[in-house]
Nucleic acid binder design. Structure first.
Lengths: 217, 217
DNA sequence: ACCTGGACTGAACAATCGTTTAGCATGCTG
DNA sequence: CAGCATGCTAAACGATTGTTCAGTCCAGGT
């Protein structure tokens, strides 16, 4: 059989379809994307999409699961590094969003897809948020045990609040980039964003700004 | 002509169609809602929808504008009250989201529509976010002038951050309600949420929790 | 009383949707 | 070599989409 795929691409045709669907779903939403668009983007016939995934909804469910798997793998890698990175507000990674964005190429459709998933009112979205919430609670516990943060009067709410603040950066990324002129999840954006966030978390809105390197006290 | 509308409803048929479209768009997204569904919900024929609004997209644009107008009116009312409510973190309204939710009935489709609008990558969404950002900057200026908050090292970013945190409550409302067991925008939810938020803004993550009424110091 | 114009319907339009089917080519297995 | 499963396409299916059209109804102006 002649290989339909261009040389240097070792993905199966099935994987190509899934990846193109992922990209299109992330960009326009699953409901706005047609089977024919996916097939065309993958360079195959519409019938083959259904042949491989049963139906458009079957494809959507498989893409959901795929994204969840990739995300879980990244999460495991992150917490597996000793977890120190997530526990220390002074470390390089100051937020889940940043750590996540930093582990992905700039043009990855995954952030967009995750954004949709988180707000989509589906089982996959609920599961994802629940996992993130559990991680947020564990992180807050870790910070509290290390004396780096108080658990607050209502730790459940505090963990949810920290998670929501973190995800806001993720969900509103495009809008924030518009008004700030910088993508807050890029390397440049983070050097602006992180200090402000850490300053508030360290001492609230009235705290004196942390001195830049070499500043006077 | 016999009045098509049920007694006690003084809206024009055109307004009924717009309202039903608003409700359905907010619930399922404009792309997932058909003209026939809107017409059926409004108790009219599909042709009449097009007759009044030119096209489905014309209807969507008009609903966008309508929501923007309603929102702007509420915003004007809010800042018109002297603005004190928004400037004082200790006052009743501790966030834009809360003030907004409190001015609407519980079953209002407006929050859902605004959520979609903010993330929709349309002109209306961009305009809305820009207005909110301007308000956030003005509020931060006011707080700084009153000595209630420092403008931070990068006031633009700080205002964006405060806005994003505020909107996160709005965007993730359903997800937060799931994990917390309480709608964070309800009256009950706010009594849990606001103190945590204010505590962080007042003194950071390490601050001692503000004493509840009658507590020992 | 006549006319005009707008609200409104029911039926139909072409286009596009997700999906099905028949069939071709290929590679593996007995 | 025959047989069969698999990857895949081209064409067509019925359903549904947004939209159009012809025509009915009724209020208001002259």
């Amino acid at each position: 059989m002649l290989d339909m795929r261009s040389i240097g691409d070792d993905r199966t045709t099935r994987a190509v379809i899934r990846d193109e669907a992922l990209r299109l779903f992330a960009a326009h939403g699953p409901e706005a994307v047609t089977v024919r668009q996916i097939a065309s983007a993958a360079g195959v016939s519409p019938g083959l999409v259904v042949h491989h995934f049963g139906s458009k909804d079957g494809l959507r469910r498989e893409v959901d699961q795929y994204v969840l798997d990739v995300f879980e793998a990244m999460l495991g890698e992150l917490t597996g590094e000793g977890g120190a990175e997530l526990f220390d507000p002074g470390a390089g990674a100051s937020s889940l969003s940043e750590a996540f964005a930093r582990h992905l190429p700039d043009d990855s459709p995954l952030p967009g897809y995750l954004r949709r998933l988180l707000l989509s009112d589906t089982g996959a979205g609920r599961l994802l948020f629940r996992q993130l919430y559990d991680l947020s609670r564990a992180t807050l516990d870790g910070l509290a045990a290390a004396g780096l943060a108080a658990p607050g009067r209502d730790p459940e709410v505090r963990a949810a609040l920290l998670l929501a603040n973190d995800l806001a950066l993720f969900l509103l990324r495009d809008r924030l980039a518009e008004v700030l002129g910088t993508d807050p999840l890029s390397a440049d954006g983070m050097t602006r964003w992180a200090p402000e966030m850490l300053s508030i978390y360290a001492g609230g809105l009235n705290a004196a700004p942390p001195r830049p390197q070499g500043d006077n006290p």
